[in-house]
Design a protein around this nucleic acid. Structure first.
Lengths: 212, 212, 212, 212
DNA sequence: TATGAATGAGGTTTCATTCAT
DNA sequence: CATGAATGAAACCTCATTCAT
């Protein structure tokens, strides 16, 4: 098998990561033997080690991409949108509903959070991720304040943290309980965050979606 | 020598669990070798294995007590208190501030959440924990609704979940970032959840505390 | 098995080293799997790794002790002996004849020389060994010069090197050829080095030994 | 395409052996992965395996050519030369000084001596090499005896072994110590071996060389 | 009851070699 | 002829656990 296209290489990496994804979700990073990944990927040890230099590298790759995906889910939209906390959270829920392998991804996210605690590289990575996300959310919230849509006394930076927290807590419970009622959680979250005016507006939006 | 033995037994178990606590917080459950626990506890392998049948049992014990402690933190007070969401969350923050070995405990909580995903016993345990907690919070919130302090349309059960989620998300970020500004997070959380009337009331309470 | 005497520990180390000695002599350092040592020593992997932290450490231990033994073999006697080159070499041959596991030791010495080339620690070790040895031999030779027993123009330092070289070359051939005629080699070496006067004196000594 | 193929074949073999030479000298036979040779040679695994059936074959080829070269270095000249021990050794030193990649070759020689101990083919090979060499040196020495230039009682066969030994010991020390003083070693070796008459003759020869 | 030396299954990784392209 | 991705046996080593003392 002579030199092979870059796509092939990328595909192999993906194949290995997908296998790892399944295994790690099932048993956890450190209880998954490499052997499980070889089998799930249908590859030999040598083949896997061609693409990743160690198990730790695979763990890092999976953890990073999961953490990154999660962060992306709470991302505010294009600059200029005057989004309040409620809309920001709303987008997160939309994203989660649309995610593929939702269950596996959420389970991995929880694992990855634990990994961050002991892995300096992942730790740096999430710090950057959260800092960036928070900065952008904060800016968006400040715009919303400027337009009078949000309490002007709100500490937008801390508020961004709280919104992220809700998303994280949702992920944990969602990973734990297969039967978690996502729409109910969503509605309650929005309701708790909404000042009366906002509540009725969003409720109307929701009804419109459901009837369409 | 039954009584002495029992106390001795409990003390030894505690000694071992404390050692495990430190080690697990430092390196994670599955990256901590038993050897580390022997050393931290100042005991021989044989001694440790007299009190715990296996490493898994130690992991389970630590995870359970951490999860239980966390759940206890969000517990509503004595029946009859008409607590709204804001007060419930407020109690959680009070609890966290007072917790001993706060950092280690939070780090372990994150780890334990991951463990729950692969460990049927822990899974059953948290399910019971969360169900009970949610039920009690829900009841408390319903009382608050009855007295008109909370939006009567709120799904109290889902709302309880959301409050738990905020606590969890806070734990994650707090474990990740040593420099997390707890008071700011707390204020933002309360502010986001508060309808105008509540906001001013709590703000006054807080000021009173600070001046006293 | 509670704490055990220091002798026991030393004995275990020796047991492992003896096993390694046999295996390494048979197959060479890097072609001997640890498994072979476990079997030869009659110990489990864990037991061996209790005493040596890696294979490399065992290699180093065996190589050092072999190199050290070899160096000791060419050592001049107590200070004050007016030994010439011939007597110095003579002592080496006496030592070799008396060495236990002579064959294995010589085979290991050859291996170890190769190891020295790639192992910085061993490299430092032999440098010290050879420097010390050469210094002492050189001093002894200089005394012999003072007493007129050795050519006063001889570079004693370089001469020491040459004597070491003869010992080394002897070791190689002795390790290669089981049937090497040691007495003949010895006689030829002494003869080549001896100026006529010395030759006859040593020959007489030898005859006396044989008749006694 | 027979001729071209043959030349090509030989050139490729040489290219591979040169690469192996460098790698083996650097890390030793068994610590050099084939990958290192592929890279040093700038060839693919497939290419290398077209010219050598296995790593062992490469090791054997390198070891043989190194051992052969070393033996050739101590070879007496054309039949009929009445060479004594001193002259024979002298030729060896001349050869070593002129050898290309002297350092690498000497390092490989030491390695190869160890290899001989475990490799039957190499073992047979050196036996033949040394036997032949010794026979020829012995004959030469016997001629010298006939002409009265060497002690008639000397065991010429054993003496040949001793001369080879000096060369080997020199090689070891030379490979170990980059700063070894070759001329001093050479002078000391010749001095130790020379009976007074020979010494002065050679010293004169040497001076003549240096002035020319 | 406590000790800690010993066990050995099983973990991660390497690397000589092959063979489809 | 050459390539280099893939193989898989086997290497080194760890670590949860046991049990003779």
């Amino acid at each position: 098998m002579p030199k092979v296209s870059d796509e092939h290489l990328a595909a192999r990496r993906r194949q290995i990561l997908d296998a790892a994804l399944v295994c790690f979700s099932r048993r956890g990073f450190h209880q998954t033997p490499m052997q499980a990944i070889f089998e799930e990927a249908g590859l030999s040890p040598g083949a896997v080690y061609r693409y990743f230099k160690s198990k730790e590298e695979i763990v890092r790759a999976i953890a990073s991409e999961t953490l990154g995906g999660f962060a992306g889910a709470i991302e505010p939209g294009a600059d200029g949108d005057p989004l309040g906390p409620v809309e920001l959270l709303d987008r997160f829920f939309d994203f989660i509903e649309g995610i593929e392998r939702r269950r596996d991804r959420l389970r991995l996210a929880i694992q990855a959070w634990g990994e961050v605690l002991h892995n300096p590289e992942l730790s740096d990575f999430v710090r950057g991720l959260v800092d960036g996300l928070r900065t952008r959310m904060s800016a968006t919230l400040r715009e919303a304040q400027d337009r009078g849509a949000v309490d002007p006394e709100l500490d937008t930076d801390a508020a961004a943290r709280v919104l992220i927290a809700i998303a994280q807590g949702f992920a944990v419970q969602s990973a734990w309980f297969e039967d978690l009622d996502l729409p109910a959680f969503r509605a309650a979250a929005l309701s708790l965050l909404s000042h009366p005016a906002e509540v009725s507006r969003l409720r109307d939006d929701q009804r419109q979606k459901e009837t369409s």
